[in-house]
Design a protein around this nucleic acid. Structure first.
Lengths: 298, 298
DNA sequence: CAGGTAGATGAATAAATTTCACTTATCAGG
DNA sequence: CCTGATAAGTGAAATTTATTCATCTACCTG
């Protein structure tokens, strides 16, 4: 009489997992542990007596029936959710999730966040920072990413380009600056491990050929890079404009004026394309406005 | 991000309750207690922040939004169930529920049930007996009912008519029969409370006017009526053909040959009209065949 | 071959649902 | 105008179900 017992959670899990093709990401999206997702999908498969996923060692792929089941179930789930949403009088908990590089977050985003929370006190915000541009946390509604080209496959907004400039402890500035470019072969050079050749590119850019740095220190976050320079460890290549705060506060001093213009720009990428989630557009608009960039959708 | 948290059970409850307009019957259909149904629907209403039912004292009615919600949700639930059913490789637990009068069950149905369970060993059967024809247990797939006219609004199959015949303890037969109809004014007359005037109708039928019974005993089940007559309490009006077993076994003796033909017939009524539930049709066919009646659908 | 990651698994724990015992309000009969 | 019976509502207890936690396995990477 009742063909479905309680597979609702399982079905939700399945639909998300069929999109992510990863239990780990599914778990993040659903605010669960990967274990819970695994249990639920296993149970769903047992209920249906069907294998929906083929478990490979570190990945999952939909079986043939799994694909068909997804195509059959997903629209229904969508409709159900929409219908319930239409009737529901409960004010939805508005929340936007966004991921961005640590340094962008600490230097630009968080300091201006007070403006957001005052203007949109009813919208919750979930900020997730990533160390490297390589880990792609697709489970947030938005991402700010540093990339050499506009991300395709998603809606992306251009923010601004970055350039790199040598910076050091202000107290060491006089001594080091007077030595000219030579100092760069006498003190440790600090940079982010994501751009290991940035110092050589900078040297090339300013016409300093046959560049032989004494030591290069790669750190895994730009915050560490700036911090290391500030502590007097050596000379760091720090990004502009997002490091401006360090210069205006006097924590760092520009050692040379020459900037390395990179092809990299910050882009704001939207992953969730649900048009009814107005709060996402609000955050997009606020980011574009707050960082003084003309919004140009890709 | 997820508009539905876990309202699946609640939605199922709601759909059934919207059809039954009774928490009690909903509970029976879903194998729950009425309290559980009440809790679930209350929770669903809280989730949606909508009042779906208006609670009257002993009944519930759908509110206006409740009606609309039902119309919007029910087809989706149906589709979801159908889709899952199509994919599910789990062999469905086949079960048919049927309700019938106690006496019909004990005299005709149960004795022949061995044939059913041998032929369809994989189909479970749930038998529910009712004392009076007044309580209508609509929550079974099938019902056998005694009625003066063919039930409308449902698929009904004609089984057979019944007549009533006076019966008594075999040991008292000689003494009582020799007295003729007069004995009926000297010993207690026993009948089912559902037909309190049956004895007077019988008397009228045989041309016994000015009938003045000494005492009439109404019992609430035909089994009690037959049992009382068998014990020698008095003369009972027992139904044919379903009491035949009592006569052939010698437990009861027909006191007079005259039968009261009633307009009442047994009908087999189908409540669940899901055409995919083949097991229901199997039971219908088996009943029609086992009781030697030509199947004529209404 | 060590280090790290995605997933699986089963026991322990947390959270949900169901029942139970009791209450309210009303209807039907006497 | 009672009395008994019925349908539904409630809150706490009890049970069932879901989630996490701690481990394991397999495998990719360097």
């Amino acid at each position: 009489m009742l063909p479905i017992q309680t597979p609702m959670r399982g079905l939700r899990c399945f639909c998300v997992a069929a999109e992510c093709l990863s239990f780990k990401e599914t778990a993040k999206k659903l605010y669960l542990t990967p274990s819970a997702v695994s249990h639920q999908i296993k149970q769903l498969e047992e209920n249906l007596n069907l294998q929906l996923f083929e478990r490979q060692t570190r990945a999952i792929v939909l079986t043939e029936v799994g694909k068909q089941f997804y195509l059959a179930i997903e629209p229904l789930m969508q409709q159900l959710a929409t219908t319930i949403g239409e009737f529901s009088q409960a004010e939805r908990m508005l929340e936007v999730s966004i991921s961005m590089p640590e340094f962008f977050a600490s230097e630009l985003f968080v300091p201006r966040l007070i403006g957001w929370s005052e203007q949109y006190a009813n919208i919750n915000l979930k900020l997730e920072t990533v160390k490297s541009r390589r880990d792609s946390p697709k489970y947030t509604d938005l991402s700010i990413v540093l990339s050499g080209k506009k991300p395709v496959e998603q809606v992306a907004y251009d923010l601004f380009p970055i350039s790199y400039v040598p910076a050091c402890n202000p107290q060491q500035y006089q001594k080091w600056h007077s030595k000219g470019y030579q100092v760069l072969e006498q003190v440790p050079l600090i940079l982010h491990q994501a751009r290991p050749h940035a110092w050589h590119q900078w040297a090339e850019h300013v016409g300093y050929h046959n560049f032989q740095p004494k030591q290069i220190i790669q750190l895994d976050s730009m915050f560490s890079v700036a911090r290391a320079a500030q502590q007097g460890l050596g000379v760091a290549l720090v990004p502009l404009p997002i490091s401006n705060g360090w210069f205006t506060s006097g924590s760092l001093q520009r050692l040379f004026e020459q900037e390395l213009l990179s092809r990299d720009r910050y882009y704001l990428v939207r992953h969730d394309d649900d048009p009814s989630r107005h709060e996402i557009q609000l955050l997009i608009d606020w980011i574009l406005q707050s960082f003084h960039v003309t919004p140009e959708a890709l």
